[in-house]
């Protein structure tokens, strides 16, 4: 089902983006974990009191008691959502739709390789990239927290949290992949593959502000990833993660099926 030659080529194509996003995540994660300091916490709480709507919209709440709570507030609302999401959008579009649009898909389809194999391989490339980013982030968090604040981090809880984060990004990746398989024109593939996740994130930001806007949370899949719920071990949070994972499986399969059956004007 996997074509190794294609997989290797595409993984090479992912390296540049992985390095860039890895570097950005390194910078933010190390700075933010380094900022965990009861004294500095007061300053941040001061920001939250001064402009609660803005801080809440990017998922930052006051009085994060533990190191992990602090990380949830300052990393899992923006940094660790946005950068892997950008990776999904950029790679998702490039893996199928761009080749069809440019015509180089003809090189891949004019060979005794099933279209399903091509789509499956490209899906594996996208998933591999997502897994690498989340694994790297996890390792980085463990190193930063371990060196700065030995013994303060609940490792099991962090692993559970990042498992949930992985499912969220697999789902975002599946939206980008489906859109890439569906549209033969990069214009539309990007519009749907980037538009849907970004719009959903904006809704999430709105919902975080609270008040009437909180209802927006019923219209965005980001609600299904609930870091506080995961840390509290809530059943509802586990159900949300399961829905994300199942949704991702359905969308990846659907994308592959559509690519297998569609007309290619190559």
């Amino acid at each position: 089902m996997l074509n190794m030659a294609l997989y290797k080529r595409e993984m090479k194509g992912s390296i540049k983006l992985l390095v860039i996003f890895g570097a950005v995540i390194t910078m933010y994660v190390s700075i933010i974990i380094g900022m965990y300091d009861p004294e500095l916490m007061k300053t941040l709480d001061g920001f939250v009191e001064a402009m609660p709507e803005f801080m809440a919209s990017v998922g930052m709440k006051a009085h994060a008691a533990t190191l992990l709570g602090f990380m949830v507030s300052y990393l899992y609302g923006f940094i660790l959502l946005i950068f892997p999401m950008l990776f999904c959008i950029l790679r998702g579009n490039a893996l199928i739709a761009k080749y069809v649009d440019k015509g180089s898909m003809a090189l891949l389809t004019a060979a005794p390789v099933k279209r399903r194999t091509i789509a499956f391989t490209q899906m594996k490339v996208l998933i591999s990239g997502i897994v690498l980013l989340i694994l790297y982030s996890t390792g980085l968090e463990l190193v930063c927290a371990g060196s700065g604040f030995p013994g303060e981090l609940d490792v099991t809880a962090l692993l559970m949290l990042n498992g949930g984060l992985l499912c969220l990004h697999l789902f975002i990746g599946s939206i980008c992949f489906l859109s890439s398989c569906l549209f033969s024109d990069t214009k539309y593939s990007v519009a749907a593959g980037a538009g849907v996740p970004i719009f959903m994130y904006v809704l999430q930001m709105l919902a975080n502000v609270g008040g009437d806007a909180e209802k927006a949370k019923y219209f965005t899949f980001f609600t299904l990833f609930d870091p506080d719920g995961i840390l509290a071990g809530a059943g509802q949070a586990a159900a949300g993660i399961f829905i994300l994972l199942a949704g991702a499986a359905v969308l990846y399969a659907l994308g592959t099926m559509i690519f297998d059956r569609k007309d290619l004007h190559l």
Binding site: R9, K102, G103, S104, A106, L107, A110, L266
Partner: peptide, 11 residues
């Protein structure tokens, strides 16, 4: 099959 496309688009 061996195929030469009318308009070849490479990587």
């Amino acid at each position: 099959l061996g195929y030469i496309p009318g308009e070849i688009s490479f990587f």
